[in-house]
Amino acid sequence: MKILRHALRMTGLVLAVSLLFPRRVYGYIDPGTGSYIFQIVIAAFVAVSFAVKVYWNKIKKFVAGLFSKKNGVQ
């Protein structure tokens, strides 16, 4: 009984550890790992300025549209 309980406890521990910490891979030699992680970090940064750029262009287009419509009426 004791052995069974111990085995269950160990299995639970292993399960908990493996759930808490995801599977790990090593980036030996391959510079790809660092690149992969880096782009996720850096993309978050550049996304902010990209968003500003995209919306700024939309605003410019909208304003330009207003004026061209006015011109069209005249």
Partner: peptide, 10 residues
């Protein structure tokens, strides 16, 4: 970043 993760588990 490449250097940092060269031999590190991720």
């Amino acid at each position: 970043s490449q250097k940092r993760y060269e031999d590190r588990p991720v």
